[in-house]
Amino acid sequence: MKKISRFLFAATLSLTAAVALAGTPVKQDVVRYGNVQIEVNSQGKGPIIVMLPSLGRSGRDYDQVANYLQADGFRVVRPEPRGIGQSKGPMENLSVHDFAKDVAAVVEHENKGPVVVVGHAWGNFPARMLAADRPDLVRGVVLAAASAGKVPPGSTEKPINAEMRQAIDGAGDLSLSKEQRLIYLRKAFFAPGNDPAVWLNGWHDETHEAESHARNTTPVDDYFAAGTVPILDLQGEADTVAPRRFSGVLKSMLGDRVQIVVLKDAGHAMAPEQPKAMADAIATFAKTQYAKQ
């Protein structure tokens, strides 16, 4: 009987964990301001974590990460960039300031005070810009698999060289063969041994172009420091886009408000590779920031 009771107890715990991970259904809303509307996917209750996606990709890439964060007691809010889903607005000649303004409208709509913002890969630029432009809305930023935008003093390299830029852009170029795109995905986004095929789909060309233009035309110093908020620099151990040789740039230039955490067996994609580890690192940082309230 005791063995049966222990079995039932363990089964109940497993079921509870599974239900928590599955989360409640994601709620979809649209936030409007001026001639812009932003689709927002949200779930959970508690302190807010806003997640911004990678170049030309949707916030739905972080479904697993969001479920873990929800299970940990957070409300996860994922605005879609313009050109994805119901998110619409001008797409020409945008700056990173414009993309940050879209996120600001979403945070204001939540009306819960300053929040923690996670910017993955390209998403780290508007995350930092939001902290710089609207310090009233941000209490901390997580820069996940983020190119700092600068290189160590004395280096003649670019933050992202031409060869890597070709791989990043080629991964989402649907005019290329599947085989070539897989080569680019392995090179730029995934750690050795991780499956790049999970990112063959989910690319949005118009958004990719608009975000690339914003990155190329907005001065790095506009967003580099992320205002004055605490920063978690969440790095993938095998990230080739934001490589280890540049891993100390943010901390060396911004000092003690930057904390570095390195995820093993993770490349630039990070979320599909290590969703639990990514969520745990974000949650630990967010709890610290909200505890200061």
Rank of each mutant, 00 (worst) to 15 (best):
S5W: 07
L8F: 08
A20N: 05
A20L: 14
A22Y: 06
T24R: 11
Y33S: 04
N41W: 13
S42A: 13
G44M: 02
G46T: 12
P53C: 06
L55F: 15
L55P: 10
R57M: 09
Y62I: 10
D63K: 14
D63C: 04
Q70L: 01
R75W: 01
P79S: 07
P79Q: 12
E80P: 03
P81L: 11
P81A: 08
P81E: 09
S87M: 00
M91R: 06
E92D: 15
N93A: 02
N93F: 00
N93Q: 05
S95H: 09
V96C: 06
F99Y: 11
A104F: 05
A105N: 10
V106T: 02
N111M: 01
G113I: 13
P114S: 09
A121H: 10
G123V: 06
A127Y: 15
R128N: 13
M129P: 04
R134K: 10
P135V: 05
R139W: 10
G140W: 14
V141C: 06
L143Q: 03
A148K: 07
G149Y: 07
G154H: 11
M164K: 01
I168A: 01
R181F: 12
I183N: 03
Y184W: 14
R186M: 07
A191C: 11
A191R: 08
P192I: 06
W203M: 00
E206S: 13
S212W: 01
F224Y: 14
L234H: 05
G236A: 09
D239P: 02
R244F: 14
V249W: 09
M253D: 09
L254V: 04
D256S: 13
R257E: 10
R257Y: 11
R257Q: 10
G267C: 02
Q274D: 07
P275Q: 14
K276M: 06
I282P: 00
A283N: 06
A283V: 08
K287L: 07
Q289N: 09
Q293D: 13
